[in-house]
Design a protein around this nucleic acid. Structure first.
Length: 204
DNA sequence: CGGAAGATCCACT
DNA sequence: GTGGATCTTCCGA
């Protein structure tokens, strides 16, 4: 079925603000040793590379941590924050630009039991407790720094066609947690599927 | 070489 | 609604 076909490399070679809404509804497939997990992406944020004060690629500054960001689209950029959490991005655009899309939230489709176990929760109080946040998603899907720099389709991570939503059901607003970025904090680069209960807070 | 801050989450009030 | 956990990364001195 088309919905299980990998997105082509050309999909990622576009600006982050174009790829971010287009990733909504896509299925993220995680192959583990003993499990195959599938989630539907319901929330993303675009980071506009060297011209974005909120991006790790701001001013084109390269460090050991963000090197992967400057590749051409199609790689995974994972980083570690707050001493205990990971966040997962898809690198987009062309070589040297630094564009990326942060995967903020997803809805479990296959393997929710395994995800709950990875999250150490028996009964999620609410749907979004499983993968409804960037760090929750990484914990649920066992994504950590070992996947940094891996290309989609390798390392047990792939994104397939999935079930993209109607354009008019997509909502957008300011990004989360980037108050330090001045005017850029208000750029409406956060995208979500309107009304989906797995979208993180604050609700759009 | 030190210190400050971070694309977060959870428990508690 | 607030604060604590916990540690890597980066920049300035």
């Amino acid at each position: 079925m088309k919905r299980d076909q990998a997105l082509p490399a050309s999909f990622y070679r576009r600006p982050a603000e174009v790829v971010a809404p287009d990733l909504l509804g896509r299925h993220l497939v995680r192959e583990l040793a003993n499990d195959r997990l599938v989630v539907k992406i319901v929330e993303t944020e675009a980071y506009l590379g060297s011209k974005d004060p909120a991006s790790h690629a701001w001013k084109g500054r390269r460090t050991a941590r963000n090197e992967v960001l400057f590749r051409a689209g199609g790689s995974i950029y994972v980083y570690f924050v707050y001493g205990m959490h990971h966040c997962c991005n898809v690198v987009t655009g062309n070589d040297g630009e630094g564009d990326a899309v942060l995967i903020r939230a997803a809805e479990p489709i296959v393997g929710e039991e395994t995800m709950r176990r990875a999250r150490r929760m028996r009964h999620p109080a609410r749907p979004g407790d499983v993968a409804g946040g960037p760090a929750k998603l990484c914990q649920a899907l066992d994504i950590d720094l070992a996947l940094n720099g891996v290309r989609l389709g390798q390392g047990g991570l792939q994104i397939v066609f999935g079930e993209p939503p109607e354009a008019d059901s997509i909502v957008r607003g300011p990004r989360v947690g980037v108050a330090y970025a001045g005017e850029a904090a208000e750029w409406p680069l956060r995208f979500a599927i309107g009304g989906n209960p797995h979208v993180s807070r604050p609700r759009l």
